[in-house]
């Protein structure tokens, strides 16, 4: 595999390899000198057609810690916004010697189109495309979940390397219809052995969800009564709040938000049969008071800051594996991802 486009493409072995490599990268990030020489002389282009400072900064930090040269190319205010095509932009970057293109795009499928084209030889990393996928977000979520899941069962001192999420029950809450994070998480967490449930208003679930390997709830309270090990809260975009998907933000918060009342329920949940508390994740940026209360975001069960830290480790792992595997310009099963 030369690219990372969708978590649906990852086998369990490939996913674990990324997570295990990310654990090693976490060690690097904890050192005084947070740098590895592995990508020295290689160029990573962050090609962002959509604003996302957090994701771009995370990829930039990851590439720099691997000693890669980083080019940030924002489509805002550039020739791209003046009608230059994706093809022309990518060919320009390719001519500059990009080894990897980290692409964030508002159109679902743009990274897959780039990877399938002959516009560039670079490895393509999907940093979020439309309402399709956000694979590195799911990988960092899995890394976060795995650490707690493993520690709860085998103790903090034992390394989670090589283990998966078998038996874990994860509840994803909110705007699944428009969420690339939800899609990537559903495929990845299922591949890693977890059981995934969704809870959302009917308007924010896609037609076709019945074909997904998930259980669907409409009531957050019933979903919590089933005792999940982790709750992933999805962001609600402001443009959905105008009354076309649900009446208003207050009703959304009451029915599908992680309110203080529901936090009290989550407080009682444990990771399977262990004493460790259940987990709360959110991909950020949060709408405090809408999908998640401030109390929940700042609670001891929240892993939201860990997610940000783990994001850098996961992206280091992905760039490392894609760019230091066998570097054929064609698909090669022996490459490291």
């Amino acid at each position: 595999m030369r690219h990372l486009l969708s978590t649906a493409d990852l086998t369990r072995t490939q996913a674990l390899r990324i997570l295990d490599t990310a654990e090693e990268m976490t060690g690097v990030s904890a050192r005084e000198v947070k740098k590895l020489p592995t990508l020295r002389g290689r160029t990573v282009v962050n090609l962002f057609f959509e604003d996302s400072t957090r994701t771009r900064v995370s990829f930039e930090a990851a590439a720099k810690r691997l000693s890669a040269d980083v080019v940030n190319f924002s489509a805002k205010g550039s020739s791209v916004s003046k009608g230059e095509s994706l093809k022309d932009t990518v060919q320009t970057l390719d001519a500059m010697g990009a080894d990897a293109i980290v692409i964030r795009h508002g159109s679902s499928g743009a990274p897959a189109q780039l990877a399938a084209s002959d516009w560039s030889e670079a490895a393509v990393v999907n940093a979020g495309d439309g309402t399709h996928e956000h694979p590195t977000q799911a990988l960092l979520d899995a890394l976060t979940l795995r650490r707690d899941w493993h520690a709860a069962h085998y103790g903090e001192a034992s390394s989670p390397r090589g283990t998966d999420l078998t038996g874990m029950r994860v509840l994803i809450v909110g705007d699944v219809l428009h969420s690339r994070v939800a899609r990537s998480n559903i495929w990845l967490l299922t591949t890693l052995g977890a059981t995934v449930s969704l809870v959302a208003p009917g308007t924010l679930l896609p037609v076709g969800v019945e074909s997904w390997p998930v259980t669907v709830h409409y009531s957050f309270d019933q979903a919590l009564a089933a005792g999940p090990d982790a709750v992933i809260m999805l962001r609600v975009q402001a443009e959905r709040m105008g009354g076309s998907f649900f009446p208003n933000a207050a009703e959304y918060a009451r029915r599908w938000g992680l309110t203080e009342e529901r936090l009290a329920v989550v407080n009682q949940l444990r990771l399977a049969e262990t004493e460790a508390p259940a987990l709360i994740l959110h991909p950020g940026p949060m709408n405090r008071g809408v999908e998640i209360s401030a109390a929940a975001a700042d609670s001891a069960q929240s892993r939201i800051t860990e997610q940000v830290t783990n994001g850098v480790s996961v992206r280091m792992a992905v760039l490392h594996l894609l760019l230091t595997g066998s570097r054929g310009h064609h698909d090669d099963d022996r490459s490291s991802l």
Binding site: A8, G109, G130, T131, E133, R183, P206, V207, G208, W212
Partner: peptide, 18 residues
């Protein structure tokens, strides 16, 4: 709408044409 609404659009994250 971008494509037929159904299982494939759900997975691809493209707005459906029911």
């Amino acid at each position: 709408a971008q494509m037929n609404e159904g299982e494939v659009s759900a997975t691809l994250g493209l707005p459906g044409w029911p």
